[in-house]
Design a protein around this nucleic acid. Sequence first.
DNA 1: CATATGCGGGACATTGCGTGACCCACGAAG
DNA 2: CTTCGTGGGTCACGCAATGTCCCGCATATG
Lengths: 345, 345
Amino acid sequence: MQNELLALQQQLVPDLLTMMKKRYRILHHLFLTQPIGRRALAQQLQTTERILRAEVDFLKEQGLLTIETVGMHLTDAGKTLLDELADVIHEIEGLGKKERRLADFLGLQKVCIVPGDADLDPLVKKALGHAAADYVRSILRAGDILAVTGGTTVATLAEQMPKTQLGIEVAPARGGIGENMEFQANTIASRLAAQLGGTYRLLHAPDLMSDEALQSFISEPHVQETLQRIRRARMVVHGIGQAIPMARRRNLPEAKIDQLAGQGAIAEAFGYYFDRSGNIVHAMNTVGLRLSDLKHIERIVAVAGGKSKAEAISAVAHGCPINVLVTDEAVADAILENRREEPNR
Amino acid sequence: MQNELLALQQQLVPDLLTMMKKRYRILHHLFLTQPIGRRALAQQLQTTERILRAEVDFLKEQGLLTIETVGMHLTDAGKTLLDELADVIHEIEGLGKKERRLADFLGLQKVCIVPGDADLDPLVKKALGHAAADYVRSILRAGDILAVTGGTTVATLAEQMPKTQLGIEVAPARGGIGENMEFQANTIASRLAAQLGGTYRLLHAPDLMSDEALQSFISEPHVQETLQRIRRARMVVHGIGQAIPMARRRNLPEAKIDQLAGQGAIAEAFGYYFDRSGNIVHAMNTVGLRLSDLKHIERIVAVAGGKSKAEAISAVAHGCPINVLVTDEAVADAILENRREEPNR
DNA sequence: CATATGCGGGACATTGCGTGACCCACGAAG
DNA sequence: CTTCGTGGGTCACGCAATGTCCCGCATATG
């Protein structure tokens, strides 16, 4: 077991393990920001140029990165090493343990944690997307239908998804909401389909509409068809939002927002608002995947990070039949911290 | 697989393995020579006092050794670490591979190799004894009969055997030969029995005697009984000697020695002399375990090291039904080296 | 086209740490 | 008692790691 070896090395050469982490961090950061120069990288990694330079010289010597006029790039060997190293660093940092504890606490099948706090460092969100993309890709099989919601985090996943030729059908789980095109479920679906070498469907509908409009809308044949595809998805990937900021982004009336706040709404997912215990306090009149559809879907993957979302994530985990959660360390720590206090209440 | 981790580390922090080996070497040497002081240890490890001091300070900080006025000692944590580390170092040094190759070539069940050359460094012999003791102890079960021959190497084994309460019966496989009491089979048997928490029998007999004397001697009831115990041993541990030096130590007449040399005698074990192909060229009129008894014994362990004995060890391995060989790296290298030349002859 | 920015790489002074070379006090052993 | 080996302290030296620049160049930008 490699864990034993790491334990031995922790005793015998602790500073070299530190060195290993340091170099891994450089490679990893480089991977996320390439191409990038010495100075900029040094600043982002909170180290001096000279120190980074020494490390970079070494890593170049090892053939793990190339130095060009535009900046530094990882070589294929560097990427391979990074992948293989990820698990090791995971264990060294104790993330594996946290994942198991969090999965146990939230009753999930699996939890993936990336180091850092997506609120503080935008690269953590990128790493989050990468980790989620890795996981999704490891599960997907040719011919699967994959449903995705919108949001910046899921958009990052699509961006980080490596090119493959899997032949997946990607469908948006939600209609459009009134914000940036870039983060719409439709946009993400098309992007993901491009990366995965598959096809995609679109749900040309506003996310929110009146009852009558909704009824007539969903009886449209092509909408019906898309909705049926969505409901037959094998896997759905969705984000988790904070209730109030989300309501604001949807331009809900102030009165409605106040009402939600009064009901203790703290989290949002799939158009549903949850209080901290996971109870649904409000369901939007939404087109797309409903909560009741989820139980027919094999694998439900939630992706969200940033300490500010910790409570929301915990709430949705209790209220939604999630299988897998991909999040960051700040969230994991916050939830596990709260857990200790809960039993006393 | 831990090998993968080592490969990764080799790329990312090449110093790590070097440093690990260095510190392992210090701990190992300290284990074999404790209590010992800074200066003496530095000299033996071919390093400077100041360097060793830095390492020792670190290892002390890690709680792996204690520093007292009499010198340094390993702590229990240090011993544990050393044990666990042994396998890792084994693989790093490629000894595991050599063991498998040598076992394959000599047709043995198992080979254990310790680094170094017992001819050059007396501590290697000690390590040899330690490794052999470790192996023997791992096999022994309560109630077993263990037969041992004489010799300095087997004596070292007895010395290195940790105290246990196994309840073993130890019997000398040979009578006494005319040399130092310390290395007699009888002495070793009693010592081993003390360490293993068992009983022992003695074979009060000269190793070499005339036919008539031998006949009358082995008909003595208590000798008979001891001999029967010996032949029912589950395990026998024996040394391997070079033919001519051994003959000299036994004070054989010069004429006999010349005759042995003429017959190509190169190795000695159990009182038999072998040529390089493993043919018996001379059998002494010996009391104790005969070659023909060996086939009834479950596990036959040979312990011998030092490059000068390489040919002898190879010869005995071919001529004797040995199961397990514990030797040093110099021997292994020499035998494996010769192997490449043999097919061409 | 000219300018500005960020890139890699070179250069150099400085400093800080590893290291060598001692010292002493002490306890054990002869 | 002397002698040896022990740990621990100290200090100066030297080199390597580091901080701090600079330059030439490619690219983006106006």
